[in-house]
């Protein structure tokens, strides 16, 4: 700061961007970090970007790039991803995972489908025909875990010749006369 007779020093900021000395402190703050960069010395990524522009954390320099959350974050939200690792923090459309690239627990389908409604659908396993109370199902096919002699994606139907017992133990054989009975 020439006013105090000290010689001018270059700003500790990338590409020579300008800086200011905070009044009454020795602290130098960069004031116009390039796009995607922020922090006192532009050493951090701005919200919505991730990386390690000056290699301060893991040693290797990783330029700030926009977060990639498989189009499964809301553009109107803030803090969508972790600024150093890039982990997506606010997955929407019932997606989950580091990049919001899979369906969350209790849902199945293709998190990368283009139409939001077709991405992840609820397992909605039938209470009577499903083992356990959990709403988990195969993340791609949506197949729930059926009790004995039960069928259907959501374990909602009995195999031929069986009926759904109300006691929630799955389906039991009809012991009826094969000729006189209707399937």
């Amino acid at each position: 700061n020439p006013a105090e007779g000290a010689r001018c020093q270059q700003c500790p900021c990338p590409s020579g961007s300008s800086c200011v000395q905070k009044p009454g402190t020795q602290e130098i703050v960069c004031t116009d970090c390039p796009l995607g960069l922020s922090g006192k010395h532009c050493e951090l990524c701005s919200d919505g970007y991730y990386g390690d522009p000056q290699g301060r954390m893991a040693g290797s320099v990783r330029p700030c790039v926009a977060c990639d959350c498989s189009n499964n974050v809301d553009v109107n939200a803030v803090g969508n991803c972790d600024r150093s690792t890039g982990e997506c923090l606010k997955c929407v459309h019932n997606t989950a995972g580091f990049f919001c690239d899979r369906c969350k627990e209790g849902f199945y389908g293709n998190a990368l489908a283009s139409v939001p409604e077709q991405k992840c659908r609820s397992c909605a396993c039938s209470a009577f025909g499903t083992i356990g109370t959990g709403q988990t199902c195969n993340p791609v096919t949506g197949q729930c875990q059926c009790r004995p002699h039960v069928m259907g994606r959501d374990c909602g139907r009995c195999k031929l010749g069986h009926f759904m017992s109300k006691t929630g133990t799955g389906c039991t054989r009809c012991d009826c006369d094969p000729i006189g009975s209707v399937a």
């Binding site: 961007s17 116009d32 390039p34 796009l35 995607g36 960069l37 922020s38 701005s46 919505g48």
Partner: peptide
């Protein structure tokens, strides 16, 4: 502002 990032 000189810094090119979203103002909140």
């Amino acid at each position: 502002p000189p810094q090119r990032s979203h103002p909140y």
